[in-house]
Design a protein around this nucleic acid. Sequence first.
RNA 1: GCCCCGGUAGCUCAGAGGCCAGAGCGGCAGCCUUGUAAGCUGUUGGCCGCGGGUUCGAGUCCCGCCCGGGGCUCCA
Length: 632
Amino acid sequence: MRIRLPSGEYRECRRAERLIDCLPEGVGLIARVDDKLLDLTAPPPEEGEVEVLGFDSREGREAYWHTSSHILAQAVKELYPEAKLGIGPPIEEGFYYDFDIGGEVFTPEDLERIEAKMREIIARNLPLRRVEMPREEAIKLFQEREEPYKVELLEEMEESVSLYWQGEFVDLCRGPHLPSTGHVRHVKLLSSSSAYWRGLETNPVMQRIYGVSYPEEEMLRRHLERLEEARRRDHRVLGARLDLFSIQEECGAGLILWHPKGAMLRKVVADYALGEYLKRGYQLVSTPHLARGQLWETSGHMGYYIENMYVFEKGGERYVIKPMNCPFHILIYKTKTRSYRDLPIRYTELGTVYRYERSGTLHGLMRVRGFTQDDAHIFCTPEQLEEEIVGVLDLTLHILRTMGFQEFKVVLSTRDPEHPERYMGTEEEWRRAQEALMRALRRRGLPYEEAPGEAVFYGPKIDIKLVDAIGRTWQCTTIQIDFNLPRRFNVTYVGPDGREHLVVMIHRALLGSLERFVGVLLEHYAGNLPVWLSPIQVRVLPISDKYVEYASEVYERLKAEGVRAELDDRGLTIAYKVREAEEEKIPYMLIVGRREVEAKTVAVRRHRVGDLGQLTLEEFMAKIKAEIEEKA
RNA sequence: GCCCCGGUAGCUCAGAGGCCAGAGCGGCAGCCUUGUAAGCUGUUGGCCGCGGGUUCGAGUCCCGCCCGGGGCUCCA
C-alpha cells in the first residue's frame, strides 16, 4: 500500500493497525481512498493508494472544523448538562453548533467560558472513536442520553449509522474526524445567535454558536484581522461618515435617501454603465413607476409575486408599483410587428422598482425595498441567443473590471432534469438555451460552476459573483433566459418563412442594483474610491483667509473643466482642514498659501499618500484629467 | 415574518427607580492668520424611539408598536 502525503511525497506502508501509524508524527488530518474519506485511525487498505489530507485541502479543513464543532458541543454539554444538541457542521470559514438551552441565551461571557472549556478538552487530547451501529440501537442510545433532536434526525436515516465518541461525549456523525481533540490547536468562538431547529419558523428556537479554528496561531490571527477589516469597511458606517446616504425611520425601512455626495457617486456609476450600453446597441427606454393590475395579471406577477408587491386601489382600479421592468419593455416591443431583420432589439432602462422584502432581510444598501436596476431586455431569435450572451458577458466583464474587480465566480443554473414538470417551456427549448449559455461561457474561457435545479421556472441563467478586495463574494450580474413572458404576452417576430415565431427574451442586470453596487464598491475600496468615481475629486485648501482669493480662482478653474471640486475657505488651521479632507477620503487636496500664490502653483496632497509637492495648475489639470480618463 | 440584542444631544457613548440627565466630538460666537491628520476660550444643543401601564416618583420596571443590528442550515 502506498501513501501520498500532503507534501506530495510517497511512502510505503504495510501491516499497520491504523493509517496514522504509517505517518510521520503530526502529519495529516484525514485520508482519502477511492473517493472515500476515512479517519486516520481507520485500518489501511490491503493495497492501492491512500491520499492523506491536511489543512490545506478543503476536505481536511472541513474535518478540522467538524471536529472543532464536536469539541464545542462537548464543552457546552459539560457546562450545561441540560442543553440538547442540534447540529454542528463545518461551514465555509469555521463551524457552528446549535443547542436548545430552554429559551436562555449565551452571553459573550458564556462564550469565553465555553472557549476555555474547549481548550481544556483539546489539552485532554481525547481520541475520537468511530462506531457503526444499526439505526435502532443509535436511537436507543440517544433516547437514553435525552437528545431528542438526534433521535429525530436518526428517524429519517438509513439502517446503519455512525457515531463518534470522544471521552464521555458522543455525537451522531458521518465523519471523518481528526484522530484526537488535541489535533485542533487554536480555536476562537465568534458569536452566538438564535436559529430555528432545521431552519423552520414553527420549530423550537436554538442557540447557535459560531467559531473558527486553525492549526497555526498566525492563521487565526489573520482570520480575526480579516473580520475586523470587514467591520471597518461596513458600507453603512462609511455611508454615514462620508455623508453619502441615510435610511430613516420617518421615511421607511429599506428606502434609501441619497445625500448629495452619495447621489453623485450613484450617478457616476449609472452614467458610466448606461453609456457603455448605448455604445453597444442598446436603446434607452423609460417607463412608469406603476401600472394597472391587469398588466401584472398578464405577466403572472399577481399570481406568483404578489407577496412582494405594493398594490393599491384608486378610482376603483387596482394598481401595482412596479417590482420589475419587463412587462413595460414588452409593451414597447409589441407596438409594431417586428421582423427577424429587426432583431436583436435591446431595451435598457435604469428602472426603479419596489419590492416588499421581509423586514428581517433588509440590510443597508445591500438589501432594500426600493432600488434601481441597470436593467435591459434583449429580444432575439433562438439562433441569435449564443451571440447575444457572449455580448452580455463581454460587456459585464468590461464594466466590472473597470470598476476595479478582477476576480469572478460564474454559476450556470440549469433545470433539474429529474423534475421537468416544474419548468415552463419545452425540452428542446431548454436544451438549446442551456447549450447556448454553456457555449458562450466556453467561448469566453470563463470557468463556471453548474448548478442543476437552480434555474428559475421560466428559464436557465448565468449569475456572476464578484470577489472583493478582502475575498468576499457579491452577487451582481444576472443573465436570465425567459420562455414564460414571450408566451404570456405573445411576443413574436416574423421569420424568414413569413410566419410568426416567439422571441427569446433575455433579462439582464449587470451591476444588479445601483444601491447594492454602490454598497459593494464602498466595501471593496473601503471608501477610498478611485478619482473617477469619487463624488468630490479635489478640495482646495487655502492656508489662511489671505489666500482665499487665489484659492477660489483655482476652484473655479477646476469646476470649469468639469472636475468635481470643493473650496474649504473656513478660517481654520491647515492641519485641521487636511485632517478633515483625509477623513472624508477626498482623493486630492490642493493647498495654497503665499508660496503658491507667488509661483502660480498648487501644493498637491494625495489622500493616504501625502504631499506630492508643487505643480503648476496646468500640470495638475493634465494629471487629474488623465487619471479620470483612464479610470485608474 | 420569527428569535435574540439594541434605540439617551447632529455623531460616538455613559447613566439602571429618587437632586437640575452627562462626557467627547460636532454646531455657533470670539480670539488666533495659521504650511500638510484636531490652535485657544466661551456657548448652544435632549418629548431618554412612540404609545399605554405599575409607582408618591419611570431613561431606568411591565405591555404593545415603530426603527436598527445579528441570526433563521453552508443540512448527522
